[in-house]
Write a protein that binds this DNA or RNA. Structure first.
Length: 651
DNA sequence: TTAGGGTTAG
């Protein structure tokens, strides 16, 4: 027998993602020994593992296990239930650095099977709380349901710990009605039972039910009183409801009811105040926290960012004594949401300099920034980074990638990713539909919409913006009318300004100006500049001067400083040979002192974003850029001439 | 033994 290898090598062997079958068995034993405190037998296991790892083939080891392994296997078969329970507990709570801890948690399941097979031990009231917790973490619904059946068979359904763990499992598995039924029918109920159910409703986005249950608990159950955990759930449910009045009431309840106001609860209160729109209250809670945690600081960053106060958010970030990846992501999200995308990218560079390991949320933020900037190269770099570092490929990440490629001009790549990704939700479909629509692939966009519906995905307001704009691009009036009506009648979605402007644009472009005007007159909100713009353009196209004038006047009314509309109105008159009116508008423009607002564009090159305004000469390569622009203009003119010659020839 | 606060996509 060779000497045992160093323990680090053994640990590496044991924690391999797919260890060979004999080693897998050893892993189970290892977990038992570790958790049951039987490490004095570990030396024989070390030797066995080493022997197995150096055995020529795994089959040899299975058919003729070396004696130390036989020894370890014998040890396993004589372990009591408590050793299994301790091991399942240790594994269900573990986090081995894998973001979801699944690598280690998953080992609970073979351990439970081994316990069932052991012959000497039976699962008991201490086994199921942790087993069900592991099943919930792993989203192992089938396994968890089987465990629940065992609970019933073993008559453990009157143990409050087991029932609470089962309620928790069901609240994660869904539907919530299953958890609720268990709670309602259970003869045993304690504080944790209430907290589990209230927390479950909050987690599943049903705060009204959570709060109702909370008040029922306060009123009905004389034995249990809400504690810190109850209040965290109630307060965060209130945040979801955006109900500041209720929030204040709950805060008052905390202060008056003797609930210990811990940092966690204060953090939850801050979060609630931010969601309910009271930054001041959040700040006041933050200032009263004696020992702030990273969560407290992060919540404050989120608060400032949500209110667009990015300088304050940055100040809080700089003042933090220590940071994990959350505050970095929170600040970056703020920059992205405030459309300060260059700052978001620069924060990422700072993050790298600080050696903070980014996660998939950082990547989602970066991709959103790239989408907004049209920064394809940076976006591609992010894509490579995700693949290289094997980040968790969440639905959100897939959706951001599709959106980034579509918005940065590479629709083929967006389609490719859409086809490849394993999980798609309504947002993923929407990103694809909008991408296709914006690239002029109207029929494909509509086809995707129909498939999405067939697959049972629920479209929302933004999905309809995608399909309506697809119809608009392709002039599909009949389909547009159908979707516009379906939105309300079948999907019960409120039609917003953007839907009306899409529909009005579609009708106007297709020559149905009367119908477009009628829609403008009957829409439930005051038409905005986009709506009147669509009407104006349609009028100009079709020479409807009177309605065009009305639309232009409305546009001037909405934004008198917008020079564009004066120019366009003058052009409309000129095109209709109404010179006098055209001159009058130009004179009016001069008289009012309206100046043209310079348009701004930006491009990304080698990961650097360059901004340009009209007649901009500030760029260091300005000369070369203008030379190139001149060359392109000449080429376009040349091509246009050739086309007109060939068109004339064809006639 | 069971419940629990902060960051993400269209």
């Amino acid at each position: 027998m060779p000497p045992p290898p160093p323990s680090s090598r053994l640990l590496a062997l044991l924690s391999a993602r797919r260890p060979p079958p004999p080693l897998r068995r050893l892993l189970q034993i290892h977990a038992h020994l570790l958790a049951a405190g039987l490490l004095q037998d570990f030396s024989s296991l070390l030797a066995a593992a080493y022997a197995l790892s150096t055995t020529a083939t795994a089959t040899d080891a299975r058919t003729s296990p070396p004696s130390p392994l036989r020894h370890a296997l014998a040890l396993l078969s004589s372990l009591p239930a408590s050793a299994y329970n301790a091991a399942i507990r240790a594994l269900s709570l573990s986090d081995d650095g894998d973001r979801h801890g699944h690598g280690v948690v998953r080992r609970c399941l073979p351990l439970y099977r081994a316990l069932l097979r052991s012959g000497t031990a039976r699962p008991d009231h201490l086994t199921f709380p942790f087993l069900l917790k592991a099943c919930a973490r792993l989203r192992e619904w089938g396994y968890g349901d089987a465990a629940l059946a065992h609970v019933l068979r073993l008559g453990l359904d009157s143990d409050v710990f087991v029932v609470n763990a089962a309620t928790h499992f069901l609240s994660i598995r869904g539907p919530m009605e299953d958890a609720r039924r268990l709670f309602d029918r259970s003869p045993v109920r304690d504080l944790v039972s209430w907290n589990t159910l209230i927390g479950g409703y909050v987690r599943r986005g049903n705060p009204a039910e959570a709060l109702e249950l909370f008040w029922r608990m306060v009123a009905e159950d004389a034995v249990v009183r809400p504690d810190e955990v109850t209040m965290i759930a109630a307060v965060s449910g209130c945040g979801q409801m955006r109900d500041l009045e209720l929030g204040r009431r709950l805060h008052g309840f905390v202060d008056s009811d003797g609930v210990s106001c811990t940092v966690r609860l204060m953090n939850a209160l801050m979060d609630m105040y931010i969601k309910c729109g009271s930054l001041e209250m959040a700040k006041s809670v933050f200032e009263r926290i004696e020992h702030r945690t990273v969560v407290s600081w992060t919540t404050m960053i989120v608060g400032f960012a949500k209110f667009g106060l990015m300088d304050d958010a940055r100040k809080v970030f700089d003042e933090m004594p220590e940071r994990d990846v959350f505050p970095w992501n929170a600040l970056m999200t703020g920059y992205v949401q405030c459309k300060q995308c260059k700052e978001a990218l620069s924060l990422f560079h700072e993050m790298q300099e600080a050696s903070v390991v980014p996660d998939e949320i950082t990547m989602v933020n970066l991709l959103t920034a790239c989408s907004q900037l049209g920064a394809l190269e940076m976006g591609m770099w992010v894509h490579r980074y995700i693949e290289k570092h094997r980040l968790v490929f969440s639905v959100a990440l897939g959706t951001s990638l599709i959106d980034m490629y579509a918005k940065c001009g590479n629709i083929e790549k967006a389609i490719h990713i859409f086809k490849e990704i394993p999980e798609k939700n309504a947002l993923t479909w929407t990103a694809m539909i909008c991408g296709l629509a914006n690239h002029g692939h109207a029929n494909e966009a509509i086809e995707h919409f129909r498939t999405m519906i067939e697959l049972g995905q629920k479209p929302d307001e933004i999905t309809f913006i995608g399909v309506l704009s697809a119809c608009c691009h392709a002039g599909l009036v009949k389909e547009g009318r159908e979707f516009f009506s379906l939105m309300e009648t079948k999907y019960h979605l409120e039609r917003k300004m953007k839907h009306y402007s899409c529909m009005i644009d579609l009708l106007g472009r297709a020559g149905h100006l009367d119908e477009a005007e009628q829609l403008v007159n009957t829409m439930p909100m005051e038409p905005d500049a986009v709506v009147w713009g669509a009407i104006f353009f349609a009028c100009r196209m079709q020479g409807n001067i009177s309605l065009g004038e009305k639309a232009a006047m409305k546009l001037v009314e909405i934004d008198p400083s917008d020079s564009g509309i004066y120019v366009l109105l003058a052009n409309m008159y000129a095109e209709a040979n109404m010179r006098k009116k055209a001159d009058k508008v130009r004179a009016m423009m001069r008289h009012l002192g309206v100046e043209k607002v310079p348009g701004c564009s930006c491009i990304e090159l080698n990961g650097v974003v360059h901004e340009f305004i009209v007649k901009d000469k500030s760029h260091m390569d300005s000369h070369a850029i203008y030379d190139c622009l001149h060359e392109i203009t000449l080429q376009i003119k040349h091509t246009a001439d050739l086309l007109s010659i060939s068109a004339a020839g064809a006639v």
